[in-house]
Design a protein around this nucleic acid. Sequence first.
DNA 1: ATAAACCCGACTAAAATAGTCAAGTATCAT
DNA 2: ATGATACTTGACTATTTTAGTCGGGTTTAT
Lengths: 141, 141
Amino acid sequence: MKLTTKGRYAVMALVDLARFDNVNPVSLRDISLRQGISLDYLEQIFLKLRKKEIVQSIRGTQGGYVLKKKAHEIKLTNIFEAVDEKIKTVQCKKESKRGCNGKPTKCLTHDLWDELENHINSFFKEKSLEDLVKNNNEKRI
Amino acid sequence: MKLTTKGRYAVMALVDLARFDNVNPVSLRDISLRQGISLDYLEQIFLKLRKKEIVQSIRGTQGGYVLKKKAHEIKLTNIFEAVDEKIKTVQCKKESKRGCNGKPTKCLTHDLWDELENHINSFFKEKSLEDLVKNNNEKRI
DNA sequence: ATAAACCCGACTAAAATAGTCAAGTATCAT
DNA sequence: ATGATACTTGACTATTTTAGTCGGGTTTAT
């Protein structure tokens, strides 16, 4: 079980963005240089973030991105959802009629994975971008 | 972020095993049929479980596997570790000197991923095989 | 005008996953 | 004894996912 770079980079880039956001739009080029993430890849990620209205773009020279919502309103959950990073412990939820493993009942451990998903998601739902920025500022990184 | 089938199958198979264990050794063939998991694949998985002393094998006709420890002593953490299912949120922990992203500092979100790992692992450390079996019996599946 | 920046779809190499396959060895029931 | 059952082990492979790259746009400040 691991987190993909898409999810990680999205969070890293947004934390970076959130720290400079108050002044001017931040260009992906700057984020790319500061965070060491490929520019092309960042563009893919921000396309998704924009579509989910987490960031807003400003085109042209001196353009870039700004947050579209307040940092405390943006939860990790929203970010991951935007870039298709989702918790998938089990694939047996689609068909409501028949259970997993093709049998009429749920698989032996079905409830366990549900529980696990909830456990992880509760973490993501609590943490906001603001929390992360504050945490970093306290440490004066 | 998703769980691999190796981890899921290992837990499913062990829950199955734990329910019949008290009587006779359980053959992989039976588990394979009941849980709908390929026999060859199960063999791979049980090889690892045996090496980590979670199960014990009994060869020959009427052979099979039995738990090597009490069900309440086997935590999810042990199972996942045995089959190499580990939580990997970030790869930036190896080099202690230099941080992630090649820079001398830790990446902006380093502590976050640490926290997430701990959060998930705490779940795995608590849950035992016994918990899972009990849970299923209550529901008379 | 032109450079800086976003926009967007298509493509791809590499790694991980989810197995399969083949060739054993041990043990029990008869 | 012998055959059937079941574990043992390593090698192999198709598929999927990941982690990007690439190329060609469009918009806008200066």
